[in-house]
Amino acid sequence: MQLNTIKPASGAKHAKRRVGRGIGSGLGKTAGRGHKGQKSRAGGYHKVGFEGGQMPLQRRLPKRGFKSALLKYNGEVTLGELQALEMVEVSLAALKAAGLVARNVKNVKVIKSGELSKKVALVGIGATAGAKAAIEAAGGSLA
Rank of each mutant, 00 (worst) to 15 (best):
G124D: 12
V48S: 12
L116Y: 12
K96L: 11
T78R: 13
A121L: 12
E89P: 07
K72R: 14
K39Q: 12
H35F: 11
L82R: 01
N107W: 01
L116C: 08
A138C: 06
H46S: 11
A31E: 05
A137N: 11
F66A: 10
L57C: 07
P56L: 09
T30F: 14
S68V: 00
A127Y: 08
K119G: 04
K96R: 11
V88L: 11
I135W: 05
K106M: 15
A97H: 06
A121G: 13
G32W: 04
S68W: 02
A84N: 06
K39S: 15
R64Q: 13
V48W: 10
A93R: 12
L95A: 07
K109R: 05
K106D: 00
Q38F: 12
A97I: 04
N74T: 00
R59M: 06
R33H: 14
K96C: 07
G80L: 01
A137V: 01
A133W: 05
G80W: 01
T30G: 10
L70R: 02
S113K: 12
G53W: 02
V90E: 12
S141M: 08
A93I: 08
K67D: 00
K36Q: 12
A134I: 04
G37Q: 02
A84G: 05
G114H: 08
L70S: 08
Y73L: 15
A42L: 06
T30C: 11
F50R: 07
A131L: 06
K106N: 03
G140N: 07
L92R: 13
S117N: 10
Y73E: 09
I111P: 03
A133Q: 11
A131R: 00
T30N: 11
G53K: 03
I111F: 00
N74P: 00
G52T: 08
G140E: 06
V123A: 09
K72Q: 15
A97N: 09
V90C: 06
Y73I: 03
K106V: 05
K36S: 14
A97V: 13
V108G: 00
A84T: 01
G49E: 02
V90A: 02
F66K: 03
L61P: 01
A138G: 04
A134F: 05
G49T: 00
K106H: 03
S117K: 14
G114R: 04
E86D: 15
I111N: 02
L85C: 12
K132E: 13
G124H: 10
K96G: 07
A97P: 00
G140L: 04
L61C: 07
K36P: 08
G75Y: 02
V90P: 09
L57G: 08
E115A: 10
K67C: 05
K39T: 14
A131E: 02
M55V: 14
L142Y: 04
